[in-house]
Amino acid sequence: MPRFALALALTALLAVASLFVGVGEVTPRALLWPAPGQDALQLLLVSRIPRTLSIVLAGAALGVAGLVMQLLARNRFVEPSTAGTAEAASLGLLAAMVLTPEMPILGKMLLASGFALAGTALFLGLLRRIPLRSVLVVPLMGLMLGAVIDSVTTFLAYRFDMLQSVNAWTAGDFSGVLEGRYELLWVALLLTLAAYAVADRLTLAGMGEAFTTNLGVNHARILALGLGIVAMVTAAVVVTVGMIPFLGLVVPNLVSMFMGDHARRSIPWIAVAGAAFLLACDLLGRLLLYPYEIPVGTVAGVIGAALFLHLLFRRDARLA
């Protein structure tokens, strides 16, 4: 599959570029012949590599989580931040900060995952109980649920004087990533691989309960599995780098335009495209106002939106 190899190569190129862009000077030359007093290698190991890895991991995982969400809810407009998942994870993180500030980060992540799982399960449970469900009601319900959860978070954060920290998590930003503070994202990678392993069953779940049951597959079990993946990915990302909204919506939808909706075929593409997209956005964020940084969430919003609209309209003109 030469096209996929090309995409991989492009992503790798972006990742390498990401290693060498920043305020501190890290160049191949500085690495090979370090000048006295400058420790480029140290900077590379402690900051640049962790940052690049975390971007790749988060981008791939969020894209795939978006797809899984869309399959489970059987709706194109759903992603962790339009289904209450991200908001619930934030609430869980707030609870962890307030109740047990000393808890290690893995514990916080697990608590946030628990909340995310509960929030997403609530979302899907509510969906099942809507008597007349139209395509657009689904994201509407998610937005509303998210708003309710978010208002609880804001209310509590205000009470405990933590509003500023809450705002800091909600804006995704990789500038604070250092060695020892991003490793949780490897969990997200494992989950992404797990999603790939059950890709066929997820595709089936996307066709509905009747369809799945007809083929002798346990629908409830796939649902639970998918839910678990989405909740834990979201929690891992929110806890380590904050939420990057929109990626889970744009990347799977874009890939679906070219690849269709068979999860086994699209998951690798979504993972690579998600990583490349986030890498490019983060690079731009670092370069545009050099030496200052623009948070990746902002850049991703602008670029993702423009790209998405362009493709949307071009496709519409071609097919309709």
Partner: peptide, 17 residues
């Protein structure tokens, strides 16, 4: 709907930028 949501994010992000 998709275009709308995307546009909303675009304006918000540009303003934030």
């Amino acid at each position: 709907v998709l275009a709308g949501v995307v546009l909303g994010v675009l304006f918000r992000s540009l303003a934030a930028f």
